[in-house]
Design a protein around this nucleic acid. Sequence first.
DNA 1: TTCAATTACAACCGTTCAGTTGGAAATGAC
DNA 2: GTCATTTCCAACTGAACGGTTGTAATTGAA
Lengths: 225, 225
Amino acid sequence: MAWDTERTKRLLLDAATTEFSEHGLAGARIDRIAAAAGVNKERIYQYFGRKDDLFAAVLAHRLRGSMDEVPMLGAGPGAVGDYAGRLFDHHLADGVIPRLVFWEGLERGPATAADAARAAYHDEKVERFRELLPGVDRAAAGELLLTIVSLVNAWPVLGHLDAFLIGGGSAGAGDRAVRRRAVLVESATALARDAIAVAAAAAENAASTPRGVPAASVRRVSEVQ
Amino acid sequence: MAWDTERTKRLLLDAATTEFSEHGLAGARIDRIAAAAGVNKERIYQYFGRKDDLFAAVLAHRLRGSMDEVPMLGAGPGAVGDYAGRLFDHHLADGVIPRLVFWEGLERGPATAADAARAAYHDEKVERFRELLPGVDRAAAGELLLTIVSLVNAWPVLGHLDAFLIGGGSAGAGDRAVRRRAVLVESATALARDAIAVAAAAAENAASTPRGVPAASVRRVSEVQ
DNA sequence: TTCAATTACAACCGTTCAGTTGGAAATGAC
DNA sequence: GTCATTTCCAACTGAACGGTTGTAATTGAA
């Protein structure tokens, strides 16, 4: 039979995605990945290089997918909440991204910023946020996006805390997801509105006192409001 | 010289805390822990049992610390924001708890609910939340606490995303922490206020239409507001 | 002083792991 | 068909790992 190297690579990448999602970089077993893919493990080294490289390939592949599949739609601060909700849905359906993101955060050093495509993607999202939120600077928009990303990714990983915090109450997991999605959309929208308000107050403040205004007095606006 | 078994145990627990925080359960090395503590590794098995048990001991010890050191003070929804802020401060100063929490979520199965002391602690916190938030039911209070816990713990772990989202901008890490703390306090307070509003609307709704009200119509209140 | 229990440690053990090798089977260009 | 190249795999390697063991030192109570 003819070789089908693309299929082999795909089988390996899929198996590796599952393995790394479940066990992380240190806990993953090359042999298990090869066995699950039905492929000799030597292929892994030929196609992807070392274990770390395979992990990086899995991460890049999967994140790229989520980047493309969750566009930002609409206008105004409500669009931020809407985006958060759809990101939530996507991660919930996907099942592996949140775990991969946190494995990455925990196991890889802070010097992963070399991924140019990823940086470009995030840049674009932040810029889209800024279009939705008049007057908001890059840092504030980045903070907002980070807050949303943190919440959306943390929840599936911290599912074991549900037993403590929510208890074996009446609501099932599905019902809880609906509830949490609503909370997320709402708070993302609220935070977006607030970011606009803070930016407006800061601009006005800057106009009246041109320079040397301590940052704390600007930030305070968001606390008082 | 006389034995000092308590000191030995403490040295091991401290070294294990650092090791597990950095590398997780699968990535941690027993030999490294023993070496860092300056203690023979056989002592680990004598005092703490297997690797998993040592991890559990580290987790219990450290979480117990954070439980006792961050009390809930004040009254009203502002107290929720205040609590979130102090939890943020504590985790920031501690440095290992967020990582341990996420290692636990990723590496241990969902059946960790056997820890009675921990469940009791969380129960108490949720009840304190309910005292602060009139009318809010257990599930909603639990959700709110989980949101706060998620944000506070996720941020230090996802620090590698800063490079993408915030960029090597003008603000240093310390300045960013101040900013994020303000955002956290503010949003926690806002969510607490909202939880009260939702509960009040639900109660009124229940009074006018005694039974059979679909949960969605109640939830909608928080989205519209 | 005796002695059982505890603490400590170096050396060890069986297993598992990431990564390699040597060679067979298949491919495609000529 | 020839042959260099690529795909594939079973078997291998050397190191590292979690966990144990045999034994010596120390303790405190009898």
